Amino acid sequence: MAYRGDEEYDYLFKVVLIGDSGVGKSNILSRFTRNEFSLESKSTIGVKFAARTITVDNKLIKAQIWDTAGQERYRAITSAYYRGAVGALLVYDITRHVTYQNVERWLKELRDHTDNNIVVMLVGNKSDLRHLRAVPTEDGQSLAEKENLFFIETSALDSTNVESAFQQILTQIYRVVSRKALDIGEDTSSVPGQGQTADVNPNDSTVNKKTGCC
């Protein structure tokens, strides 16, 4: 068990939020980590992240979730943003078809900068705006199936499926890490130390414990 101040956790997983500007990434982050939503949220330049700990299979999983914070408007996302990420939420706005069209570009960038074993969930956000829907649920499902992604529709405004999205992706990441540990006969009760992440790399023969969050 690792400790940081009063907090303890078994695993620390870095998850990145990607997708076009204005699709609601920052509100998804604030809804999950602080149960807050702001209609006035504005894009800011830089990178920000927030963390929350959940339980998966009796293990405490600390999710460190990174938000592009406006960089996507300038195509300024760097490899440092993706480094060490074991999961990603690729978000589009169900009321803006262009944000769905751009999913494949985001997916290519993600795969160019991360390990091919990264767990990716396609997220159709703003599901509360049913009367403005421009992307049918079936389109999101079929794209996710084609690209081997998990899929969910959310509303950061009314909280629909936000908790479920993170619970699902963190559970899948944990299962990948656990499976690798079992494959090499490790004791899965051994956990990363303080400030370490499990690096999910299928090309390695072990589950690396990489110091640092990024």
Rank of each mutant, 00 (worst) to 15 (best):
T188H: 11
V176K: 11
G124I: 02
L39V: 08
D10F: 03
D10G: 05
V47M: 09
F37Q: 02
Q64V: 14
F37E: 01
I65M: 06
A198I: 01
N116P: 06
D67S: 15
L60W: 00
D115S: 11
Y92A: 01
V47G: 14
G212T: 04
E8N: 10
L132R: 12
D199E: 14
F13L: 04
Q71R: 15
Y11D: 02
S41Q: 12
Y74K: 03
I152R: 00
P202Y: 11
N208E: 12
L60T: 01
Y74E: 08
F166V: 01
G46A: 08
A88K: 05
T154W: 00
I18R: 02
W106D: 02
I94G: 00
V120I: 15
Y3S: 13
F37V: 04
S178A: 13
R130W: 02
D139P: 00
R175N: 13
R4H: 13
E147Y: 11
T53E: 01
G185D: 13
G87A: 11
F32W: 09
I173K: 00
E153Q: 03
L149K: 07
L157N: 06
R4F: 07
L132N: 10
H113T: 05
L89Q: 00
L90I: 05
H97E: 10
Y74N: 06
T206W: 14
G70A: 11
A80K: 08
R130K: 12
G124C: 06
R133K: 14
T78K: 07
A2P: 03
V103D: 01
E104M: 10
R34G: 03
A165K: 01
V207N: 08
N117G: 13
N201V: 09
R83W: 05
L89T: 00
S142F: 07
G185L: 13
L157Y: 10
Y92K: 01
R73N: 13
S41K: 05
T114L: 06
F13H: 01
F150T: 03
D67F: 15
L39H: 13
V191Y: 05
V16G: 04
D57P: 06
T78M: 09
I184L: 15
V162Y: 00
D112H: 10
Y100W: 07
V47N: 12
R133G: 03
Q101Y: 14
S79I: 12
L107Q: 14
S164K: 09
I65K: 02
D10A: 04
Q167R: 11
C214D: 07
A181F: 09
I61H: 01
K48C: 09
R175V: 15
L107S: 11
A156P: 07
N116A: 05
E36R: 08
G70Q: 09
V98D: 13
I118G: 04
